[in-house]
Design a protein around this nucleic acid. Structure first.
Lengths: 216, 216
DNA sequence: TAGATTGTTAATCGATTAACAATC
DNA sequence: TAGATTGTTAATCGATTAACAATC
């Protein structure tokens, strides 16, 4: 399999969509799927799907389609999910709690190994099978458990400090929900998830295209 | 202010970022900001910011920059946030709970007017000042409170039914966290928020560019 | 006036779509 | 073989970047 550098991020964002739907197809006992039918299910053009996949190799059979199980395995290797990344979550408010119990993470092979908070009412509680630890011990546990990816769901005011601590403990990638730009060494991958952008987009489209039938 | 049709979605996604940072600047008592400095703060090029804004008008002063308060107000009107959209959340698990208490939503002018669940242990509880109602009464409350935007944080298995009920009750826009394609009339705006894509992207980049310093 | 910064036009870059030859 | 569907190349479309004239 090719691992060409310089694959567009747009492609990388679509791969998990393909993968998750392929898992559903596999569970449903479907062996073969065409780009046409997969595209219908996902609302993506078949050309787009074929183009995305050929960034990494030729996984289909001409005149037939894609073998579901085979393609699952290929995408697992492309995304790197066979590694079963270990994750730690800092900030066990409701969002952190939700993520700690998020079944899709497990399904994708992510393993939650540490939950951290500063609130003594939360420390010691069992959340999704893991005991919440004091943030003071976060670095120690990240090192012990060899956690590679950190999720930050703390208030924005402490997010930078948490990121610094995670980086110091050896974390390589961070997914943050705090609405601010984190300062990290440039060998660390940071992605920001912004829950308010979606609502803002809806507001924009409702305001400016309010009768959709007229414009589409 | 111009409201040109056909503005790119990429632009629409950046507007809330500008807006939120402008609010911070305003709170800090800063009156004027250049695209250069705003770009530094956000990690966006100044050219990009200027280009985005000129889709809607000429809000800056040449040789000076942008007046923070004025630009805030302009963006509020572009996104349509002056409307104070009323929102309802279906599925008050931890994610729904987190969103019901999400301060950024309030800050942007969204008003949570209804919380709905099927679980009798949750119905009747006060979450962020709102009493959780049975999903059975969702349609009635959406109509009574004139809720315009729905957020779906239910399990995927019931998300379509919830969406159908929301649409039947007159909701115009839906933000869904369920990892599946919702079927709705095409005059309804649906945006999907996918919490697992961020982790998958991190997995991809850690796998394929593991020593970032070599490649960037 | 001189320096700074916008708004706009042109150039570049990249991503999506279309078309079709290859082949199962 | 005939029909179907991929993989790939070419064409189009759109978004970002660069350059600079306008002007505060």
């Amino acid at each position: 399999m090719r691992h060409k550098k310089g694959i567009s991020d747009a492609v990388i964002e679509r791969l998990p969509l393909y993968y998750r739907d392929l898992l559903l197809l596999r569970d449903a006992g479907i062996d073969i799927i065409s780009s046409e039918r997969l595209g219908e299910r996902l609302g993506i053009t078949p050309e787009q799907i074929r183009k995305d996949l050929t960034c990494f190799g030729a996984f289909g059979k001409k005149g037939v389609g894609y073998y579901v199980s085979e393609l699952c395995q290929q995408i697992v290797e492309i995304i790197g999910l066979q590694q079963h990344w270990k994750i730690g979550i800092a900030g066990i408010g409701h969002l952190g709690w939700a993520l700690a119990n998020y079944k899709t993470f497990e399904r994708l092979g992510f393993r939650t190994m540490g939950l951290f908070d500063v609130d003594h009412r939360i420390i010691g509680q069992n959340v999704g099978g893991i005991t919440v630890t004091s943030s003071v011990d976060m670095g120690k546990i990240i090192r012990e458990q060899q956690i590679q990816i950190g999720i930050i769901t703390t208030p924005a005011s402490v997010a930078q400090q948490v990121a610094d601590d995670m980086v110091a403990a050896g974390i390589k990638g961070i997914l943050t929900f705090a609405p601010l730009r984190l300062n990290v060494p440039n060998n660390i991958f940071v992605f920001r998830e912004d829950l308010s952008i979606g609502l803002s987009r809806i507001s924009y489209y409702l305001t400016n295209y309010s009768d959709k039938t007229d414009t589409f």
